[in-house]
Simulated scan of single mutants.
Amino acid sequence: MRVGLLFGSFNPIHIGHLILANYMAANTNLDTVWLVVSPQNPFKPSNSLLHEFDRLHMVRLAIEDNPDLGVTDTEFRMPKPSYTIDTLAYLKEKYPTYQFSLIMGEDNLLTFHKWKNHEQILADHNLLVYPRKSSAQPIPANLQEHPRITLVPAPLLDISATFIRQCLKEGKSTRYLLPESVETYIKSKKLYHS
């Protein structure tokens, strides 16, 4: 089983995440894409994060009708902040016959050298890299030509969870930005409201 891992806070999950995950599942050699809900990103402050179980529930709601997508709460049981190398080691131990690939934006590839044990990640796993409008600098040739790195021309949607949270806080419409089930859940629990 070839599994693509799309890590994120999903605070909240939105259509940009879903389009990317589905595109990767349907247009690469992956058998499935798992969305890895991260309790805390080591590069982001945690004070703006909704509770991890709410974020996990919203991802489940968002993908429930798509058999090509899955979700994992693996990092919930790991020390925080969680590091990708540790999550990969855990998943390899739990699913020894699976091949795990990382799905990341090109902005993350440009800072990949700052990740904990990045050389080991690249030695053991493929990286599927999608374009990001926010990337100001081109990907260096040594990374573009690396045998473990594949640049995937996934559709680019400039939608951010930060923008969606601001809309919700201000009482503005988030129709078509969020899956309907997620929008209903957020409204019913009054999440992200001021």
Rank of each mutant, 00 (worst) to 15 (best):
D73H: 09
I186T: 06
A25K: 02
L88A: 00
H17A: 02
D65K: 04
C167S: 12
E183L: 07
A62N: 05
Y98V: 09
P12W: 05
K80Q: 14
P39W: 08
A161E: 08
I164H: 04
V37W: 10
S181L: 10
L143H: 00
L191V: 10
H51V: 15
Q99F: 14
S38M: 08
S134G: 07
H113P: 01
F100E: 01
Y95F: 12
H14T: 11
Y95C: 10
G8H: 08
S48Q: 15
P96M: 11
K172W: 13
L156R: 13
N29Q: 08
M58Y: 14
R132K: 03
R148E: 01
Q144D: 01
Y176S: 01
Y176I: 01
L35K: 12
P12L: 03
S134D: 13
I139N: 02
P81N: 12
Q40L: 14
N117C: 09
T84M: 08
L20T: 12
Q166D: 14
G8P: 07
L151I: 04
V152Q: 04
E93T: 08
I85R: 13
R77Y: 15
I103W: 05
K169W: 10
E119T: 02
D65M: 02
L109H: 00
T84F: 08
T97K: 15
T174V: 15
V71F: 01
R148V: 00
I121Y: 05
D158T: 07
F76S: 06
F43W: 15
D158I: 03
R2I: 07
I15W: 10
T162P: 02
S134L: 10
I164A: 03
S46K: 11
I159R: 03
P155N: 02
A141P: 01
N108R: 10
P12F: 04
L30M: 13
V152D: 02
L20M: 06
L91S: 09
I19C: 04
M24D: 02
